[in-house]
C-alpha cells in the first residue's frame, strides 16, 4: 500500500515537471523574441543584443529551462517585465488573499455539497432530487460571470446589503470581513457546489445499483443505513475525486471572480500579467496554480487508495 501511495505521489511530481516544461515551452521558446517585443519600435541591434544577454535569451533552450526551473526551486521567480519587481515578492503579497478566499469557499462548499449530493442520492427520483438536478445543471451550464453579476445585482444593487467591490487590505471587524468576502465566496460557492453535488450524487447512485445494495435491502437494512454504511464507504474514492476536481475548478473560477470584484489575489495578478504580456509573472502564477491542482488531484487519489480495502490489504 505504501508503495502504491509513494508511486502516486511520485507520479504527481513527474507530472508537475512535465507541466513546467510545457508552460516554459509555450511561453519562452515558441513565441517571438521577447527582447525585440519588449523594446518595440525603439529597438536597435545593440540594445536588443544587450537585453537578450541580460535576460539570458542568448542561451540554448534547454539551459534556459534548467536555469528557470532552478530559479523556481530556490524561490527566485525572476523579475516582472512590467515594473521590474521580483515576481516572488508580487506573488508573496497576493497569495494570502487568494488562499483566504479559497479556504472560505472550500469551508462552505464542501460540507454543503456533500450534504446535498448525498441526500439527493438518498431520495433519488423525488421532487427534491429533481429540483437539485435541474438547479445544478443550470448553474454549471452558465458562465461564472453570470452567477457573479447576478449576485451583484441582487445583493449589492437591489438589496444594498453588501459591497460589490472588495479589498482584503482594510479589514478591521468581523462585519467588515463578512461584507468583503460574502459576495465573492457566495459566487464561487454557487458554481463549485453545483459541480460537486452532481458528481457526489452520481458516485453514490452508481454504488446504489450494485448487487450488494440489493442484498443489504433484502437483509432488512433501512434506506439511511444502506446509503451511509453500505454505499458511502465504496463511494469515498469517487467522492474524493469529485471534491478535488471541483476545488480545482475553484482555481479557474477564482480568475473570473477576482477580476469582477477587483479582488487583489494571485489570479488577478496573472490576468494583469497576461494583458501586459509580462511572461515571468504569467509563468510563475501558472506554476503556482498547476502545483495546487496537481496536489489536489494527487491527494484525492491517495484518499481513494486508502479507502479501498482491495488496495489497502494486499
Amino acid at each position: 500500500m505504501l508503495k502504491l501511495v509513494a508511486a502516486r505521489i511520485g507520479l504527481g511530481i513527474v507530472s508537475l515537471l512535465l507541466v513546467s516544461l510545457a508552460i516554459f515551452a509555450i511561453t519562452s521558446l515558441l513565441p517571438g523574441d521577447a527582447a525585440e517585443e519588449l523594446l518595440g519600435q525603439a529597438a536597435t541591434r545593440e540594445t536588443v543584443e544587450g537585453l537578450r544577454a541580460r535576460l539570458g535569451l542568448d542561451l540554448p533552450g534547454h539551459l534556459r529551462y534548467l536555469n528557470w526551473l532552478g530559479g523556481l526551486l530556490t524561490g527566485d521567480f525572476g523579475r516582472s517585465l512590467a515594473n521590474n519587481v521580483p515576481v516572488a515578492q508580487l506573488i508573496g503579497s497576493r497569495l494570502p488573499n487568494s488562499l483566504m478566499l479559497a479556504a472560505a469557499t472550500a469551508a462552505v462548499s464542501v460540507p454543503l455539497a456533500l450534504a446535498i449530493g448525498i441526500t439527493a442520492a438518498m431520495w433519488r427520483g423525488s421532487t427534491y432530487d429533481r429540483a437539485v438536478s435541474m438547479l445544478t445543471l443550470s448553474v454549471v451550464s452558465v458562465p461564472e460571470f453570470l452567477v457573479a453579476t447576478a449576485a451583484v445585482i441582487v445583493f449589492a444593487v437591489h438589496l444594498r446589503w453588501l459591497s460589490a467591490l472588495s479589498a482584503a487590505t482594510d479589514i478591521t471587524s468581523v462585519g467588515q470581513f463578512f461584507r468583503v468576502f460574502a459576495l465573492p465566496v457566495f459566487s464561487l460557492c454557487c458554481v463549485i457546489v453545483a459541480q460537486m453535488v452532481r458528481m457526489t450524487r452520481a458516485a453514490i447512485i452508481d454504488q446504489l445499483r450494485a448487487p450488494y445494495v440489493e442484498m443489504a435491502v433484502l437483509k432488512g437494512v433501512g434506506p439511511f443505513r444502506v446509503v451511509l454504511r453500505h454505499a458511502l464507504p465504496n463511494a469515498i474514492g469517487p467522492i474524493a475525486n469529485a471534491v478535488a476536481l471541483s476545488l480545482s475548478y475553484l482555481l479557474g473560477g477564482v480568475i473570473i471572480i477576482e477580476t469582477i470584484f477587483n479582488y487583489p489575489g494571485i489570479a488577478k495578478l496573472m490576468v494583469d500579467g497576461v494583458s501586459t504580456r509580462d511572461l515571468p509573472v504569467v509563468q510563475a502564477c501558472a506554476m503556482v496554480f498547476c502545483a495546487a491542482y496537481l496536489a489536489l488531484v494527487t491527494t484525492a487519489d491517495v484518499v481513494a487508495i486508502l479507502s479501498n480495502p482491495r488496495l489497502r490489504h494486499r
Binding site: P211, Y212, K219, V221, G222
Partner: peptide, 25 residues
Amino acid sequence: ELREFRGRRVSYVAQSAAAAFNPSR
C-alpha cells in the same frame, strides 16, 4: 415491518456472492 421481517424471518442467498458482499466491509 418488512425491514423487521427480512433477514429475521426470511433470508436470501444470492447467486454471485462476489457481487453481493460489500467490498469495503
